[in-house]
């Protein structure tokens, strides 16, 4: 559906370099990356709203690089809703029909369906100014989908919303995606959104795509140190590999497979590291004695830093476990993790 080949963009301080991306028809594709990675710029380039230096963008097989935005059939939804403040909610939703030849009956049906799915009926005659963020974003979704675009671009549509509205809009997005033929491409830095909505994803960093794949895959098997750090792999160490063992800073770690590269990185998610006071007799093949070097209150859980020889591991632990184990600064503990919890690349 969307096929991007060798896209380069230079815009003041921003550069996108050699972007290659394929998104299938009706896929819900996620674009992740830190602020300044160039995600919004990529979206605007697809929509024809940012100047492209070189490369091609195909939608349904047609090269659209030369087309103005109004001829591309691509909808866009921004984080800040971008509703037209001088028009009523209904006029906002119907705005696109001024420029599309649509069958009246079909348009009526579509409107009714969008109003129903997004629960907008009671708002139709209001102005957008005093509505809640959730309401505004639902309106902006209805406005974009009213013209039945081939592709809908979503630029962090949920990140400005309060938690209670976030779940609403997320659910609405899921319903809309399931009931339409439109291909969704969403920028987010929220992993909950990515995991609950998306199928495949790309991680961007500094204007480059670092990794493309199924979201679970990206979380489980980050392809680079950056992606590992970005998806929350706090325990990331450069290591030497031999057969199914990794060594670094005097520690030897057992792996679930044998890396083919002689040296690279290993990464372990904090939640995969178990903390105990004595060595556990379990299937966990990696156990190391250490000392608690720091306890950080994270609200629902505690983040624990454990120093073993030269290496510092980060783990998370609930408050009750913390009390139960009597863990405090400089207490002796054991960190354990399964061989399969160790990611290498």
């Amino acid at each position: 559906m969307i096929s991007i080949k060798g896209l380069n963009i230079e815009l003041r301080d921003f550069h996108l370099r050699d972007i290659n991306l394929d998104v299938a028809q009706n896929e819900f594709f996620i674009l992740m990356g830190p602020t300044g990675a160039g995600k919004t710029l990529l979206l605007e380039a697809i929509a024809g709203l940012a100047p492209v230096k070189s490369g091609k963008i195909f939608i349904g097989g047609n090269d659209i690089i030369g087309l103005p935005p109004e001829k591309r059939g691509i909808g866009i939804v921004y984080q800040d809703y971008a509703l037209f403040p001088h028009l009523s909610v209904k006029e906002n939703i119907l705005y696109g029909l001024n420029f599309h030849k649509a069958d009246k009956k079909e348009a009526q049906q579509r409107l009714a369906q969008l109003i129903e799915t997004l629960d907008l009926f009671h708002l139709l005659h209001r102005r957008p100014a005093n509505l809640s963020g959730g309401e505004k974003q639902r309106i902006s979704l209805a406005r974009a989908l009213m013209v039945d675009p081939a592709v809908l671009l979503l630029d962090e549509p949920l990140s400005a919303l309060d938690p209670q509205f976030k779940a609403d809009v997320r659910a609405a997005l899921k319903r809309l995606h399931e009931t339409s033929r439109t291909t969704f491409l969403m920028v987010t830095h929220d992993f909950t959104d990515a995991l609950s909505l998306g199928g495949r994803a790309a991680v961007m960093h500094n204007g480059l795509i670092e990794q493309v794949g199924a979201i679970e895959e990206i979380f489980k098997r980050p392809a680079s140190a950056f992606v590992a750090g970005f998806v929350g792999m706090k325990n990331l160490f450069p290591a030497e590999f031999s057969k199914n063992k990794a060594t670094f800073s005097g520690l030897e770690i057992e792996l679930a497979g044998a890396p083919t590269n002689g040296h690279g990185y290993i990464a372990i998610r904090p939640e995969d590291i178990v903390i105990s006071r004595q060595i556990l007799s379990s299937s966990m093949r990696n156990s190391f004695r250490g000392v608690v070097a720091g306890i950080l209150d994270q609200g629902f859980y505690y983040e624990l830093r454990v120093q073993t020889q030269e290496v510092s591991f980060t783990s998370i632990i609930t408050k009750s476990s913390l009390i139960e184990l009597g863990i405090q600064e400089s207490a002796d503990v054991v960190v354990s993790f399964k061989a399969s919890a160790v990611h290498f690349f």
Partner: peptide
């Protein structure tokens, strides 16, 4: 906001229509 104009263009309005309507 330039985003209002961008959204208008993405909904099918030319730059002239966007200027006079938004």
């Amino acid at each position: 906001s330039p985003r209002l104009e961008k959204v208008s263009r993405s909904l099918g309005a030319s730059m002239f229509s966007t200027f006079f309507r938004i």
